[in-house]
């Protein structure tokens, strides 16, 4: 038998039986964390003068309220792993009167989970923006939020407004949720 091939076979066997590996540490998997940042639209609405005035231009109700159930925190992944939340609000006030907005976050018993966010939008302000940063560690009750209530109030006195006017007040909002999970 050719001695070169003998050596070659021996070498191959040695490689097979005495294969090497760099030092690996599978315990590193314990350090695995994911830190995604999700952004989502929240509530939006448009109101017209007739939401506040009757046909004769009389202010019948300068404060209107609507609310929605908010079940995002029923998802245990979000509830347990969110550590920061940015709430962005954008408003466009075409009215000739100022508008004030109260944003309330409520739990299942209608208790506030976060202090009311009060926004004042001057008449004619078309580019109002507000950023509310909520650190969950400082506001642990926030993850109990089950309802969002928004009260929109128009200034009671001021420039006359025709109820048939097509001027609008718009509110847009979005949340950005910062997650950190060790899975």
């Amino acid at each position: 038998m050719n001695s070169i091939f003998k050596k070659l076979i021996l070498g191959l066997l040695l490689i097979s039986f005495f294969s090497c590996s760099e030092e690996l540490n599978f315990e590193q998997a314990d350090d695995l964390e994911i830190s995604p940042i999700y952004t989502s639209s929240l509530v939006y609405f448009t109101v017209l003068p007739n939401n506040f005035f009757d046909d004769t231009g009389v202010l019948t109700n300068n404060s209107i309220t609507d609310s929605t159930v908010f079940r995002a925190f029923e998802n245990s992944f979000f509830r347990n792993n969110i550590f920061l939340l940015d709430l962005n609000v954008e408003c466009k006030n075409e009215f000739s009167r100022a508008i004030s907005i109260d944003l309330e976050f409520l739990d299942a018993n209608n208790n506030q989970t976060y202090p009311t966010i009060e926004l004042d939008i001057a008449a004619g302000d078309l580019d109002f923006e507000h950023l509310e940063t909520i650190l969950i560690a400082n506001n642990p009750a926030f993850v109990n939020t089950l309802q969002v209530r928004i009260t929109t109030e128009i200034e009671a006195t001021g420039a006359p407004i025709n109820s048939s006017d097509t001027t609008e007040f718009e509110l847009k909002s979005a949340v950005t949720a910062y997650i950190n999970s060790d899975i």
């Binding site: 509530v43 609507d66 159930v69």
Partner: peptide, 19 residues
């Protein structure tokens, strides 16, 4: 398509927007 929750401010109807 999801744009968010569109509040209607309709005092005559109670809407469960989330549902």
């Amino acid at each position: 398509t999801f744009e968010g929750i569109n509040l209607q401010y309709d005092p005559t109807t109670s809407t469960d927007y989330w549902e």
